[in-house]
Computed example of a mutant assay.
Amino acid sequence: MSDVDQSNPEAEIEAIKHVIATVERAQNTESPDEFLGLFRADAIYTTAGGTRLFGLDAISAFTRQVLLAACQNTAAPADEVASTSNSRPVFDPH
């Protein structure tokens, strides 16, 4: 996914909607490749159980083994963007 113009809130919301639609479609069609296409090589993903996965290789292994297998024969719930807020890292130099 390309970078989104952060000075354009409508573009940011459309990008979020695109990600949600891609996740839903990937789950409904059991397509790990489509889901994994959302991640950069250096991504960090936290599972529903709280386990952190570092890097696309770890996320891919988890997804192919666990995540999408859990969705077999079930439809992913429909999600929608209800609200957004800007979240930026806060660094404490001390």
Rank of each mutant, 00 (worst) to 15 (best):
residue 58 A to K: 13
residue 35 F to V: 00
residue 32 P to L: 06
residue 31 S to C: 11
residue 57 D to R: 06
residue 33 D to M: 05
residue 60 S to T: 08
residue 25 R to H: 12
residue 53 L to D: 00
residue 61 A to C: 06
residue 37 G to N: 08
residue 29 T to L: 15
residue 25 R to E: 14
residue 67 L to N: 05
residue 39 F to M: 03
residue 55 G to H: 04
residue 71 C to R: 09
residue 60 S to N: 02
residue 64 R to W: 08
residue 36 L to G: 06
residue 30 E to T: 08
residue 62 F to D: 10
residue 31 S to H: 11
residue 34 E to S: 03
residue 28 N to W: 10
residue 28 N to S: 14
residue 64 R to V: 07
residue 45 Y to N: 05
residue 69 A to N: 15
residue 40 R to M: 12
residue 64 R to L: 07
residue 64 R to C: 03
residue 47 T to K: 05
residue 40 R to V: 12
residue 25 R to S: 14
residue 36 L to A: 09
residue 63 T to I: 09
residue 41 A to C: 04
residue 37 G to M: 12
residue 24 E to S: 11
residue 23 V to A: 10
residue 54 F to L: 05
residue 57 D to Y: 00
residue 54 F to Q: 02
residue 24 E to M: 10
residue 42 D to N: 13
residue 27 Q to M: 11
residue 44 I to M: 10
residue 31 S to Q: 09
residue 38 L to P: 00
residue 29 T to H: 12
residue 37 G to F: 11
residue 69 A to P: 05
residue 24 E to P: 04
residue 67 L to T: 01
residue 33 D to G: 10
residue 68 L to F: 08
residue 55 G to A: 13
residue 23 V to Y: 06
residue 37 G to R: 04
residue 57 D to C: 03
residue 69 A to G: 13
residue 48 A to V: 10
residue 48 A to Q: 11
residue 25 R to N: 12
residue 43 A to W: 01
residue 32 P to D: 05
residue 64 R to D: 03
residue 35 F to A: 03
residue 45 Y to S: 01
residue 66 V to G: 01
residue 32 P to V: 01
residue 38 L to G: 01
residue 23 V to W: 12
residue 57 D to K: 11
residue 53 L to A: 02
residue 32 P to Q: 04
residue 40 R to W: 09
residue 69 A to C: 07
residue 56 L to H: 12
residue 44 I to E: 08
residue 28 N to Q: 12
residue 31 S to E: 12
residue 24 E to K: 13
residue 51 T to R: 15
residue 42 D to W: 01
residue 54 F to A: 01
residue 52 R to S: 12
residue 44 I to F: 03
residue 46 T to V: 15
residue 66 V to W: 01
residue 68 L to Y: 06
residue 52 R to F: 07
residue 59 I to V: 14
residue 48 A to P: 01
residue 56 L to N: 04
residue 71 C to V: 02
residue 46 T to W: 01
residue 26 A to K: 02
residue 33 D to C: 07
residue 30 E to G: 05
residue 36 L to R: 07
residue 60 S to R: 09
residue 52 R to T: 07
residue 50 G to W: 02
residue 33 D to Y: 06
residue 46 T to F: 02
residue 53 L to Y: 00
residue 37 G to S: 10
